[in-house]
Amino acid sequence: MTMNNLMTQIAISISEVMETMFYIPVEPRDSYTTIGKSGLFTDRAAVSSPYNPVITPEKIKSAIITFHGIAFSGTIGLIVPENLLMIMTENFMGENRQHLTVDHLEGTLKEALNMLAGNTFSKIDDKSSFGLGVPEINTAEVLNRIKESGEYSNTPLLVVETMNGRIGIAADVEQN
């Protein structure tokens, strides 16, 4: 499996998940970039919204999930601007934003990532099972550390456009 193939399946899956469960049409970019080149944590943010044009780790929400397949293993990260996550949660739960809590937002983000990963891997290989972990939220502290250290600057990132901001999907994969 190549990174191109993985990112293609991720692009198809994020479209299905966002449109079926969140009623948000999306348009994945044709090619993926890297976290470092995307400007994720700069003014040229790959992940931004009309309300938060300058992105800082405090303005985005992110979750990660691990997976273990026969041929490859790794981590997928989903990065969403807060305002877009609010809209996703409203649509997902059918609740007005004044009734939403941090738990609702984080639960929605984790569920979106879980569906994205499960859907992606069943497209890559629908015969064997991928061991998916439990999604975890990246705190602002973790995002700040990633930003400062540049540790994941070469990690591939797919940028997905929506009417309410951009989603980033990072894939850190190792062949077994």
Partner: peptide, 9 residues
Amino acid sequence: VTTEGSKEK
């Protein structure tokens, strides 16, 4: 109801 979509699962 799950994301695990493999035939094996």
